[in-house]
Simulated scan of single mutants.
Amino acid sequence: MATIAVIGAGGTIGSAIVVEALAREHEVTAVVRDPARYRGEGVAVAAADVLDPADVARVARGQDVLVSAVGGGDGPGRGRLIEPAARALVEGLRSLGGDAPRLIAVGGAGSLETAPGVRVWDAPGLPDWLLRIMHAHGAAQDYFNTVTDVRWTVVSPAATIEPGPRTGHYRTSLDHLVRDEEGRSWISVQDFAVALVDEIEQPEHIGERFTCAR
């Protein structure tokens, strides 16, 4: 059993990760901005701001793994989030020194290659709001790639991720988009959570990004 803190536990992906980890009898802390609004059960609940390294260090202390499931948007409201959050996560964990837990961050699919030198975000017709999120995740990934003193893993989903069945089946790659025989790249939120918790239990990608799809 691992102790796991999930930042963004109230979101679609974060809540699925919590459910999957609990089903495997891990000890989970749900980390959210407003604990009064959190509706999950069977977990400890903590408040933290992912952009505050001191908050990150506080909720990460004593955990085996810190999961960051934030980053669904990068625009109005709180403004830029994804790449600054990556830096705050690393800074917070660095402050814990040798006691820092492993970091697993949910990434994006935009920077995955679809052909040599071609990435998902190069497809024509993508809306500006989506490109902004894709490139924010790409900037976060570029930053993680420079980090050598924190144990990190980024898990990028398929091109399409949405609620669906939990089958427990998925395929992986490193920096190349995973597609089926018809060219589709899809995974359910539930199977994405399976892949992420599998990585917690059987680490294979420390210091690198991998992606998963059905």
Results as ranks from 00 to 15, higher is better:
130 L>E: 15
130 L>G: 14
131 L>G: 14
132 R>L: 14
132 R>S: 14
132 R>G: 05
135 H>K: 12
136 A>I: 03
136 A>P: 11
137 H>G: 02
138 G>M: 09
139 A>D: 15
140 A>Y: 03
141 Q>V: 11
142 D>V: 07
143 Y>A: 07
143 Y>L: 03
144 F>M: 08
144 F>D: 12
146 T>L: 09
147 V>M: 10
147 V>G: 01
148 T>L: 03
149 D>Y: 00
149 D>G: 06
150 V>R: 03
153 T>C: 10
154 V>A: 07
155 V>S: 03
156 S>M: 06
159 A>C: 01
159 A>E: 13
160 T>N: 09
160 T>F: 12
161 I>H: 03
161 I>A: 12
163 P>G: 03
164 G>N: 11
165 P>C: 00
165 P>S: 11
167 T>M: 04
169 H>E: 14
169 H>C: 06
170 Y>R: 01
170 Y>I: 04
170 Y>K: 02
171 R>V: 11
174 L>P: 00
174 L>H: 08
175 D>P: 00
177 L>K: 02
182 E>C: 00
183 G>E: 08
185 S>G: 09
186 W>K: 00
187 I>L: 12
188 S>R: 00
189 V>E: 07
190 Q>I: 07
190 Q>V: 09
191 D>V: 05
194 V>Y: 08
194 V>M: 09
194 V>S: 01
196 L>E: 12
197 V>H: 07
199 E>A: 07
200 I>G: 06
200 I>K: 10
201 E>F: 02
202 Q>I: 04
203 P>L: 01
204 E>I: 01
206 I>W: 13
206 I>E: 15
206 I>G: 00
206 I>R: 11
208 E>C: 08
208 E>D: 11
209 R>A: 12
209 R>T: 13
